[in-house]
Simulated scan of single mutants.
Amino acid sequence: MPTLVLVAEPKYQIRALHTESTVTVYQAYTPGIGLPAAREGRFPAVWQRDRMTWIKPSFLWMMYRCGWGTKEGQETVLAVEISREGFEWALEHACLSHYEQGLHADQATWKRQLKRAPARVQWDPERDLRLQPLAHRSLQLGLAGEAARLYADEWIVSITDVTSLARTVHAQVLGGHLDAARQLLPRERPYPVAEGALAHLRR
């Protein structure tokens, strides 16, 4: 009988629901922002373009962050489909959110890069269905300034309210039906990036 070899997930890899032209990221907002955003397919006027906004390609990391849509101010969970062109522009122009010796020349250089960059990246532990941390990391992409404006005004293809999906998956998890819950999850798979495209964003 052949030996089953389990291949570990790469520690730093973007996994997302994506098509040939789009990638889906997740955010959670108050109903006052989330509901009109889903209805109109764009963020309402009260959405602040001068603040950093964080987008997350991992559905389960979003569930960890918003508590399955139960945390105050994060009751409406949105799946935001954006252009791959915009997503990759943000990655190209991003800076790692913390100083990493060996990656950055020195702390002063990193601080200058961070201040100028319209986007920043964090790699946080991915989560399982019980929202426990896994060994591999999940990308969080922060957009500010030019990147936030481009995100809101040019990159968005569609916005869908997936709060009901979050609650349904959570109910299955609470009931111990992990296989059923897993079947409901968005089909996230490795996102293709050019060789070396993430070199400036990996520890």
Rank of each mutant, 00 (worst) to 15 (best):
Q74A: 10
L150I: 15
R137C: 10
G67K: 05
D50T: 13
Q113D: 13
V173A: 00
Y151L: 05
A105N: 12
A79E: 12
A8N: 13
D153G: 10
L114S: 13
T70K: 11
P57S: 01
R203I: 04
W61E: 01
A147Q: 01
L103K: 08
E188C: 05
T70N: 11
I55K: 11
G69T: 00
Y99F: 14
A152M: 09
G142E: 06
A181R: 00
E85L: 10
E188I: 00
Q13M: 13
R167S: 11
L139V: 08
H104L: 03
W155N: 08
K111C: 06
D124W: 11
A180Q: 14
L141I: 14
P192K: 06
H200K: 06
E20R: 14
E92P: 05
R112Q: 15
A197S: 15
A194F: 03
D50Q: 15
G196D: 09
S158T: 14
H18I: 08
Q132K: 15
H98Y: 11
R137D: 09
Y151P: 03
Y99W: 07
R187G: 03
L198I: 06
F59E: 06
Y151R: 01
T30M: 00
S21L: 08
L35S: 09
V23Q: 12
L91E: 01
L91W: 08
T160S: 14
Q140R: 13
A194V: 10
D128K: 01
A94K: 00
I159F: 07
